[in-house]
Simulated assay, not measured.
Amino acid sequence: MILIFWLLLVNCIGAFVTIHDKHAAQRGAWRVPEKTLFALCILGGCPGVYLTMRTIHHKTKHRRFMIGIPLIFAVQLALFAWLCYQHTPVLL
């Protein structure tokens, strides 16, 4: 239950930060560092950041984001699947 709450929270924060950065870019204001967006992804916010980027067309021309974020998400999913496999009793 805590994991689900965490993932919802970090994805909402990731979406909010991505939207904020888009508005800051349009106004020429202070921008969110790229490290922050990647940190949110590493903390579990990949779906929120990536879907928001695609929806509002922010940083979609940056290969680092368009390849890096899905790659981080794929690694996280693989790790999650491996952990589930390791903790599932084998029925004979």
Rank of each mutant, 00 (worst) to 15 (best):
T52V: 06
A74K: 00
P47F: 11
L37R: 07
H58F: 03
L9N: 02
P70S: 08
P89E: 02
P89F: 03
Q26C: 06
C12Q: 09
I42W: 07
I2G: 14
E34A: 00
Y85M: 04
V49G: 07
F38G: 11
R27C: 02
L8A: 12
I72P: 14
P70W: 02
H23W: 09
T60F: 04
L51R: 08
L83K: 06
V32R: 00
I13L: 12
F80K: 03
I72C: 15
G45T: 05
A78Y: 03
I72W: 06
H23M: 10
W6T: 07
F73V: 09
L8E: 07
G28T: 03
A74H: 04
G14T: 00
L51H: 13
H62A: 09
D21N: 10
I19L: 04
T18W: 03
K61L: 15
L37T: 00
L40Y: 06
G48N: 07
Y85R: 04
L40C: 09
H62C: 02
R64E: 04
W82V: 06
G68W: 05
A29H: 07
A78P: 00
V75F: 15
L77S: 08
L9R: 01
W82P: 04
I67D: 00
L51K: 11
V90R: 00
V49Y: 02
R27A: 05
L92K: 02
A29C: 04
L8V: 14
Q76G: 15
Q86H: 06
I13Q: 05
Q86V: 13
R27V: 01
I42L: 15
W30H: 07
K35H: 14
Q26S: 13
W30S: 10
P70R: 10
